[in-house]
Amino acid sequence: MSAITDNSILEGRSGTFGRLSDFFWRNPKILLFLMLAPPLLWLGIVYLGALFALLLQSFFSIDEYSGLINYEFTLDTYRQLLIPSNFDIILRTVVMAALVTLASALIAFPIAYYAARYARGKWKALFYLGVMLPLWSSYLVKIYAWKLILAKEGILTWIFAKLHLSWLLDGWLSLPIVGGNSLSISYTGTFIVFVYVWMPFMILPIQAALERVPGNLIEASADLGGHPAQTFRYVLFPLALPGIIAGSIFTFSLTLGDYIIPQIIGSSRLFIGQAVYAQQGTAGNIPLAAAFTVVPIVIMGLYLWMAKKQGAFDAL
C-alpha cells in the first residue's frame, strides 16, 4: 500500500496545470522568484527609478537668461541651498519636525501606557477606535476643520474669551516667531495641526512596545525599593524607547515632507514641501526643486540608520 502511494505521488499529475503545479512544487525557488518579480520590478523601476531621476535632475542647473535646464553636471544647485533664504526653509522645516515629534511623544506616551497596562476588553477596543477614527476621515477635511477652530472667530478664541484669557492669547500671538494675526495663520497653529494629524502614528508603536514589557519587571523594581521615577527611567523608558523611535520615524518624516498643512494653516514663510511645489510649479526651476527634495531623503536616511541601531524596527 505504501509503495502504491509513493508511486502515485512521484508520477505527477496529468494536464497543463497539473504538470505546472508539480514543477513549482519541485522548484520552490522559481515560484518564489515569479511571485516577487512583479512587486520588485515595480519598486525598482517606478519608485527607485523615479528617485534616481530626481537625484540626477538635482545635478543640473537652470539658465538664468533663457530659463531652460542646462544638462551639464554641476553642484551649483546644491550651493543654492546654502543661500540664507533657502537654508532658512530647511532649518525651519527640520525644527518644526523635531518639535512635532517631541510633543507627539510626550502626549502619546501616557495614552499608550494606559492602553497597554490598564485597558482591557471593551475599553481597549474603545482605545483603538479612538486612535484610529481620525485616520478614517479625509485629510483635507481635518485641516480645514482645524482652520475654522483656530480662526480669529473660531471656537478656541471664544473659549479664551469666556475664560477671560484673551490677553494671554493676544500676548502669545504678538510674539515675533510663533505668533500672527490669528492661530490659523501662525506657526503655533501649524504645530497644533501637525501634532493632531500625526498623533496616531506615535501612539500605536509606543503602545506595541509597552505591551511587550513584562509586568513583573515593574513589580520587581518596586519590590527592590525603586521609586516610580526610577522605574520609569531605568526600566520602562529603555524598553519603550524602540517604540518611541519607531513612532518618531512616522511623525518626523511626515512633517518633513508635508506641504498642505503649512499651505492652509501657516504664515508666508515656506517649508521644504512648499518650496519644492513653488520651484517646480511656479518658478519652473526643476533642478532646485529636486535638490530641495534630496534634503529630506538624506535626513531620513541618516535617521533610519540611527533608528535601526536602536532596534526601532522591532516595534513597527
Results as ranks from 00 to 15, higher is better:
residue 62 I to L: 07
residue 63 D to M: 01
residue 67 G to W: 01
residue 68 L to W: 03
residue 70 N to C: 02
residue 70 N to F: 00
residue 74 T to A: 01
residue 75 L to Y: 03
residue 76 D to I: 02
residue 78 Y to S: 00
residue 79 R to K: 02
residue 79 R to N: 04
residue 81 L to F: 02
residue 82 L to E: 02
residue 83 I to L: 07
residue 85 S to C: 03
residue 86 N to C: 05
residue 87 F to G: 10
residue 88 D to P: 01
residue 88 D to L: 09
residue 89 I to K: 00
residue 90 I to C: 02
residue 91 L to W: 04
residue 92 R to N: 07
residue 93 T to H: 00
residue 95 V to M: 05
residue 95 V to I: 13
residue 97 A to F: 03
residue 98 A to R: 08
residue 99 L to M: 14
residue 100 V to Q: 06
residue 104 S to I: 13
residue 104 S to M: 14
residue 105 A to L: 14
residue 107 I to T: 11
residue 108 A to S: 14
residue 108 A to E: 14
residue 111 I to H: 04
residue 115 A to E: 05
residue 116 A to G: 06
residue 121 G to M: 07
residue 123 W to R: 03
residue 127 F to D: 07
residue 128 Y to P: 04
residue 128 Y to Q: 11
residue 131 V to G: 08
residue 132 M to D: 09
residue 132 M to S: 13
residue 132 M to C: 13
residue 133 L to H: 14
residue 133 L to A: 14
residue 136 W to A: 14
residue 136 W to M: 15
residue 137 S to P: 02
residue 138 S to V: 11
residue 138 S to Y: 09
residue 139 Y to G: 15
residue 141 V to A: 15
residue 141 V to C: 11
residue 142 K to N: 15
residue 145 A to K: 09
residue 146 W to D: 12
residue 146 W to M: 13
residue 146 W to H: 07
residue 148 L to H: 12
residue 148 L to M: 08
residue 148 L to R: 06
residue 148 L to I: 11
residue 149 I to W: 04
residue 150 L to M: 08
residue 150 L to F: 01
residue 155 I to D: 13
residue 155 I to K: 08
residue 155 I to C: 01
residue 156 L to F: 02
residue 157 T to I: 05
residue 158 W to V: 12
residue 159 I to R: 04
residue 159 I to W: 03
residue 160 F to E: 11
residue 161 A to W: 10
residue 161 A to M: 07
residue 162 K to G: 10
residue 163 L to K: 08
residue 163 L to G: 05
residue 163 L to T: 12
residue 164 H to K: 11
residue 165 L to K: 06
residue 165 L to D: 08
residue 168 L to S: 09
residue 168 L to V: 10
residue 170 D to R: 10
residue 170 D to V: 05
residue 170 D to C: 07
residue 171 G to N: 08
residue 172 W to Y: 08
residue 173 L to V: 14
residue 174 S to H: 06
residue 174 S to Q: 11
residue 175 L to D: 10
residue 177 I to M: 09
residue 179 G to T: 15
residue 180 G to P: 10
residue 181 N to K: 09
residue 182 S to L: 14
residue 184 S to C: 12
residue 186 S to V: 14
residue 188 T to H: 04
residue 190 T to E: 14
residue 190 T to S: 07
residue 190 T to A: 12
residue 193 V to T: 08
residue 193 V to M: 05
residue 193 V to D: 03
residue 195 V to L: 05
residue 195 V to F: 00
residue 196 Y to H: 12
residue 196 Y to P: 04
residue 198 W to G: 05
residue 198 W to Y: 09
residue 199 M to T: 06
residue 200 P to G: 06
